[in-house]
């Protein structure tokens, strides 16, 4: 009996979707568009996040010391800096500085050859990276302490302060905007799906009434609609995913010429997370469909 019931209920769900295709197809398309927009913003948000992270990782400030600075002084500053949260200070010895200099391809070979191990005017220094650009002000405070002043040859933060602050503000804004847009589109997707399915079910309340009056048990009335909702959601999600992949590959071909040097590989990101994104979209679609059906049914099916 349970087998007959499952068979009949699934058949009802599938047959109803097909018989109501003039209603199903537009519903699927509307849900697809919102899922697609949601996907676009998730991917854009991801790109914005990773790009701003790489941008931030590229920012380091450096303290260079006079030759008069003793190793003790340098170590003292390094320690003080490392005590700050999210601050990493790496010691650059004369040899390290030389090796760095030698590896710089932007300087002519002849110039590079001028400096040798025996004749090395390059200063010792501390290279400072912070996990959060906001920590740089704390770094500045420590470096500015009176006791270090006579030994410091150069503190690169001063030159780049404005630029760093701008980058910091910009990345923060981008992250916030991406999060807000993604949230908005998730909410929009839920609302649109809910409304679309609600309308599809509303137009069939006569059928629901008949089912009730002929003594259909609750599962016969409700479950076929859940199945329909799931079918809507899953087909919409599949189409949205295809559309997303197509647009990403198109975006790649366009962006390559516009943003040279920046890694805006939307297609690559999508492909490297292919199954996660696909699964997530399908799951979101199916759940959204079932959830919307359940809510609409509750509204229109008085038992």
């Amino acid at each position: 009996m349970i087998f007959t019931r499952i068979k009949r209920i699934s058949k009802l769900g599938i047959v109803n979707t097909w018989r109501n295709r003039w209603l199903s197809v537009p519903a699927v398309f509307i849900i697809m568009m919102t899922l697609f927009m949601m996907g676009v913003f998730v991917v854009l948000g991801y790109i914005a996040n990773t790009t701003s992270d790489t941008l931030k990782d590229k920012i380091t400030v450096q303290v260079d010391f006079n030759d008069s600075a003793t190793e003790d002084v340098i170590q003292n500053l390094q320690q003080k800096l490392s005590q700050q949260t999210g601050v990493i200070a790496t010691y650059i010895s004369k040899q390290d500085a030389l090796a760095d200099f030698k590896s710089r391809t932007d300087i002519k070979q002849e110039t590079r050859d001028l400096i040798t191990e025996e004749n090395n005017p390059l200063p010792r220094g501390l290279r400072i990276r912070t996990l959060d650009l906001d920590n740089l002000s704390a770094v500045e405070e420590v470096v500015r302490e009176k006791q270090f002043e006579p030994y410091i040859y150069k503190f690169s933060y001063e030159d780049n302060k404005l630029l760093i602050e701008r980058v910091n503000e910009a990345t923060k804004f981008i992250k916030k905007a991406a999060a807000v847009m993604t949230t908005i589109f998730v909410v929009v997707a839920i609302m649109v799906t809910l409304n679309t399915i609600q309308m599809a079910i509303y137009s069939r309340r006569d059928e629901i009434e008949i089912m009730r009056l002929v003594g259909a048990s609750q599962s016969y009335v409700k479950v076929p609609f859940y199945i329909e909702g799931a079918i809507y959601g899953i087909s919409a999600a599949t189409l949205a995913f295809l559309l997303l992949v197509l647009s990403a590959s198109y975006f790649n071909s366009v962006s390559a010429s516009y943003f040279r040097g920046f890694n805006l590989d939307a297609y690559g990101i999508l492909m490297s997370h292919f199954f996660q994104v696909l699964l997530l979209q399908l799951l979101a679609g199916a759940l959204l469909g079932i959830f919307s059906s359940a809510i609409s049914i509750r509204k229109y099916v008085k038992i």
């Binding site: 007959t4 089912m211 259909a216 048990s217 016969y220």
Partner: peptide, 24 residues
């Protein structure tokens, strides 16, 4: 009448039985 327009006479009647778990 409240008949389902996309079901035949036979189906409109058998539907009521299907919905109450009657065997085929």
């Amino acid at each position: 009448f409240k008949l389902l327009p996309n079901k035949t006479v036979y189906e409109n009647v058998s539907y009521a039985l299907e919905l109450s778990d009657e065997p085929d």
